[in-house]
């Protein structure tokens, strides 16, 4: 396959960016999208040009490090995958592919296609945990948990923190990310203990960091590589509102 790539290049957070057009040739359809970028970068290095910076790590769809807005979609034109799992067979020979970084006020660009998602860490630090110290905990089987609850908790816990929800949301909202954590813990008896505190603290931090509000479009769910349902956002709303009403 021969392809034309329009890639956003930006030297650093402060510099203005622009699209630069590149050509790549003889790409096998079995190549992954990031391998295609590796090939481009190797060519650029041989030409003495700066390679394109993009975040990636595990390349099997679980670490959440890769991002990229490809031809108008977060993680590209395929469902329930991350960019590293996208393969070139999803494109046609001769296609022009536009590659942009995540765009959101809370995710500033660091360089080229890499953005700063540390806001997610800050939200989780505000309350995305159960306050237990190491040791001194009861036996794992001492609290039976209905299978359906454990499964639903796991559905939400599948979040990889990639930020596709924020990147896709027209409001730059992190509600799906926050909801996934709040909902996952709220479905477990261990997590219920500080459920109210958690929901309030995490939402307050999310608002403080400049994420937008949820308008229930469901775009986040459509682009989430783990298919996390916005039903978890309803649970977050419930948790948050009932906690606030008690204050």
């Amino acid at each position: 396959m021969n392809l034309t790539l329009k890639i956003w290049r930006q030297k650093n957070a402060k510099a203005p960016g622009k699209f630069v057009t590149y050509k790549v040739e003889n790409i096998s359809p079995d190549t992954s999208f990031l391998e295609m970028l590796d090939i481009l970068n190797n060519d650029l290095i041989h030409k003495g040009e700066d390679p394109v910076v993009f975040d990636h790590d595990c390349r099997e769809g679980i670490c959440g490090m890769c991002s990229l807005h490809i031809n108008g979609f977060a993680h590209g034109p395929d469902t329930e995958i991350t960019t590293c799992q996208l393969h070139m067979r999803k494109f046609k020979d001769g296609d022009t592919i536009t590659i942009e970084p995540w765009r959101s006020h809370a995710f500033p660009v660091i360089k080229d296609l890499a953005v700063d998602r540390s806001a997610f860490d800050k939200i989780l630090q505000a309350g995305g945990f159960i306050s237990v110290n190491t040791g001194g905990v009861p036996d794992a089987n001492s609290i039976p948990i209905p299978k359906a609850d454990a499964d639903e908790s796991m559905d939400a816990a599948a979040c990889i923190g990639c930020g596709a929800c924020v990147a896709t949301c027209k409001n730059g909202s992190a509600m799906l990310f926050v909801a996934a954590r709040v909902s996952s813990l709220a479905k477990l008896p261990q997590g219920r203990v500080e459920g109210a505190r958690r929901a309030k603290a995490m939402v307050a931090k999310m608002d403080e960091l400049g994420f937008g509000a949820c308008t229930n479009t469901g775009a986040c769910e459509a682009q989430c590589p783990k298919g996390i349902s916005i039903a978890h956002i309803a649970r977050l709303n419930r948790e948050f509102l009932s906690a606030k009403l008690k204050d």
Partner: peptide, 9 residues
Amino acid sequence: DQCVAQGVP
């Protein structure tokens, strides 16, 4: 035990 207490599903 520790992981279950932390909310690992």
